[in-house]
């Protein structure tokens, strides 16, 4: 086998990185910008090393990585029946675990580490917030129990979370209509 040192390793999907910056003088959609798209492992690393680490972003900013053609919002037809595995971090974890968790999340996505259930994945979002940062993997169908649970288990394993830590999956339809304290997990792992 001859390995061409100049060839890049193709990804199963083309991915789009989005950046959101909270500017109250603009609409939500105007604050959301497509940064770039990539479809090789090498181009992913070139992008990752070029952009600011999530922990260095100011509060109110988000990064989103979604499959090409899916916009990082509930309203997108690929997302509207779906939901998210949500990781909420304590304030001090921004300095200890946030960047590592986000990188592991990105690697799970681009490496298609959920095997055949990877088709269920739409993307991932990181929210940088003063009250506590959040990372989530979004999937397309909240009723697809087997797929959602499999993704949750593999995700938790890759983050290196202990079996004592419980993470929850919430349907976007519920998140959109209920306030934080009423938020109900559809599944937990």
């Amino acid at each position: 086998v001859v390995v061409d040192p100049f060839s890049k390793h193709p990804l199963q999907n083309r991915w789009a990185l989005w950046f959101f910056k909270n500017d109250k003088s603009k609409t939500w959609q105007d604050n959301l910008r497509l940064v770039t798209k990539f479809d090789t492992v090498e181009d992913f690393w070139a992008l990752y090393s070029h952009i600011q680490l999530a922990s260095k972003l100011t509060s109110g900013c988000d990064y989103s990585l979604f499959k090409d053609g899916i916009e990082p919002m509930w309203e997108d037809s690929w997302n509207k029946r779906g939901g998210r595995w949500l990781i909420t971090l304590a304030k001090q974890q921004r300095h200890t675990e946030l960047d590592r968790f986000w990188l592991e999340t990105l690697l799970c996505l681009i490496g298609e580490m959920f095997s055949d259930y990877s088709d269920e994945v739409c993307g991932a979002v990181i929210n940088i917030r003063a009250k506590g940062d959040k990372i989530a993997i979004w999937t397309r169908e909240a009723e697809n129990r087997d797929g959602v649970i499999h993704i949750g288990r593999i995700y938790k394993e890759h983050l290196g979370l202990s079996s004592k830590v419980v993470i929850g999956y919430q349907a976007h339809a519920d998140t959109a209509t209920k306030s934080g304290s009423l938020m109900k997990n559809k599944f937990v792992v």
Binding site: L11, L107, G111, E112, S115, D116, S118
Partner: peptide
């Protein structure tokens, strides 16, 4: 069709290759 899957180790190695 076949799915292109990469494990964490491989992806991290690609980061460090020239």
């Amino acid at each position: 069709g076949t799915r292109i899957i990469y494990d964490r180790k491989f992806l991290m190695e690609c980061r460090n290759s020239p």
